[in-house]
Amino acid sequence: MNRINQKLQEDKKLLSIYFTAGYPNVDDTATIIQNLETSGVDMIEIGLPFSDPLADGPTIQASSTAALKNGMTSELLFEQLKDIRQSVSIPLIIMGYFNPMLQYGIEAFCEKCQAIGIDGLIIPDLPVDVYHSEYKATFEKYGLINVFLITPQTSDKRIHFIDSVSDGFIYMVSSASTTGAKVGFGNTQTEYFERIADMNLKNPQIVGFGISNNETFTQATTYAKGAIIGSAFIKHLTKNGVNATDEFINTIL
């Protein structure tokens, strides 16, 4: 069974952490992954940097630009991760924009992911409809789970379609926004969280965007299976370096 599905069966709320590969330093990728696993994180999203990350706010834009300046590429990321399964067993997801994957070749990209032990992908600008008609078979051939986003504006009908195409979890974007930690959730979020919880979807939901501390993590996971933190962790990395992950994770859990 895919490590993501295994993890989702555990009777606990899950913490997933996003970081940008190649940031702060180009060779930090494996170290950050190992440290996150040791710190008790449940799942990791490895960000493949892109020059024009449309769905991202200033923090992830800046880490992506820095990572590309540091020389990060798809090929280099695969090289850095080739032995990662010798040291960690945590579910690993690559999150990146579609164009770099398209240039690598979708089949070649998926094949590489499987060889390394990547469990899934999150591609914000690959719409579920295109995935469903053109790429689903390839992803499945290489045992990869593709994760889709929903937002407060996504219609019930589309959520049900996304649920039917998904086989892992649904990435629930907390509010209409680009990535970047803002403080606190209001009534709108609570209503949205409740609406989704009441839909009884087949896939569990993990909330992302706007989670930055224990309070927002707790609010999100009251309704959902887990939560994802990105920008807040990148800010922590920028300030404290790669070896202080415990310090950050302890403030969340």
Binding site: F50, S74, E75, F98, N99, M101, Q103
Partner: peptide, 21 residues
Amino acid sequence: GKEGIIHGCKTLLMQTPDGQI
């Protein structure tokens, strides 16, 4: 340019071999 995705559209665009615009 080479075929790829820019601003939500599949079209020709100038990019690196790695797919950075």
